[in-house]
Nucleic acid binder design. Structure first.
Length: 111
RNA sequence: CAGGUCGGCCAGGCGGUCGCGCCCUGCAAAGCAGGGCGAGGAAAGUCCGGGCUCCACAGGGCAUGGUGCUGGGUAACGCCCAGGCGGGGUAACCCGACGGAUCGGGCCACAGAAACAGACCGCCCGGCGAGAGCCGGGUAAGGGUGAAAAGGUGGUGUAAGAGACCACCGGCGCCCGUGGCGACACGGGCGGCCAGGCAACCCCCACCAGGAGCAAGGCCAAGCAGCGGCGAGGUGCGGCCCGCACCGUUCGAGCCGCGGGUAGGCCGCUCGAGGCGGCGGGCAACCGCCGUCCCAGAUAGAUGACCGUCCGCGACAGAACCCGGCUUAUCGGCCGGCCUGGGGG
RNA sequence: GUGGGUGUGGCCUAAAGGCAAGGCACCUGGUUGUGGCCCAGGCGAUUGUGGGUUCGAAUCCCACCACUCACC
């Protein structure tokens, strides 16, 4: 997933998590807020609760890969933050993608 | 063959599709195309040591902290190598904070007479007493206590005894000789056995250490607003004092409280005490010379997903300025040296 | 990145190198018509883990683990 469509700055993360709406699933949490631009940007978070550095990297990679496959079908003009939950370490990529698609449909971002 | 011990190495492979970061080249550019590179042996814990950067410059004294057999290696070390000594193991081999207890202070619970100073039961002598025994003195062999109580055996000696004396053995101190750079070892002589342990208690001795840390430090851009109180000292060095320098005591350094602004980008940023190969020196750690290679540089933080296939369904685990060590975690596999036991030729 | 702190029964705290103490909780009995309060008795500890120093370690030293705080 290219960096230009990623959330980068700490202030962006702070704004989305303060002002956005959140939807949860056992594997992850999705936070949504209108971006004010045409494009949609996505940020990925794994806290120390997930585990050590290897586990946190694994969780972020799963979320990024799922978002990459779904990105063309997601509506434009939103900022998304994906937060990993501990259960995600036991899942494989298609399950994570399915969970993300479910949350995106609930948020009316996906068809 | 079995068991042990020491050392070194590997860390799923191959093929395909989609995807990520950096660098180079081409195109005028957003970008696209091609090529190259892309986590570890511990990247970890942050327990030590250095490089690098800033703190204006260096000095003296007192503290504080660390290390602790000897020699060597190294940029340096609390690391490594070799050796000595002590301990463990049949052995290969492993382990060791391993300087000083007559400078001084402190501690050694309980038990025990007594924990570094003395005598409870004993033994012996003298006196008293009809006697049991009592009093005074000598003694430290035997008993008892304890983790620890004036070296062991045999003799001489004695009232009873005792290194009081003698022989041998063991330990300690001093002196001399030999070997070794040295720690130390071996041999000889003398001395008295005056008599403990703990310095991972203070301490003494020797050696070492200025402070902070890449959020160091430098550049660019953007933004802002002051007010009130205390006030003669404050800052540069971290602990203190001296010295030196700077700012300040009318125009107010600094501190405290309230309030206001920013949290973007670039450099540092990877070529290094570097890897590999050869030759030479050294027992080794390691060093020198020559050749050759370029091997992550991210900044919400790049290595992943899916499919096929093989083995045994693959552990611990992710660079964040860089190196040298230590320690800890780790499924399993491969190679080699040595030791012990058994069997065969 | 740097520098501190803590770890003791289920919980909260004690303990100058010498038998790990107390309160709450829990259990049993008493008191009461019943429960609480109260009284008596009892159970319950690898002192975070592993080594070392010492005759002897919760205490001293080293390494590790977990939690936690402060600063930039």
């Amino acid at each position: 997933m290219e960096r230009r469509i990623r959330l980068r700055r700490p202030a962006d993360f702070e704004r989305v998590r303060q002002e956005g709406c959140s939807l949860s699933h056992p594997l992850l949490v999705l936070v949504v807020r209108p971006s004010g631009f045409d494009c949609t940007r996505i940020g990925v978070v794994a806290s120390r609760k997930i585990g050590n550095a290897v586990a946190r990297n694994r969780a972020r990679r799963l979320l990024r890969e799922s978002a990459r496959h779904l990105y063309p079908r997601i509506a434009s003009g939103w900022d998304l933050v994906l937060i990993a939950r501990p259960m995600i370490l036991r899942a494989k990529e298609p399950q994570v993608r399915e969970a993300l698609a479910l949350l995106a449909r609930q948020a009316a971002l996906l068809e």
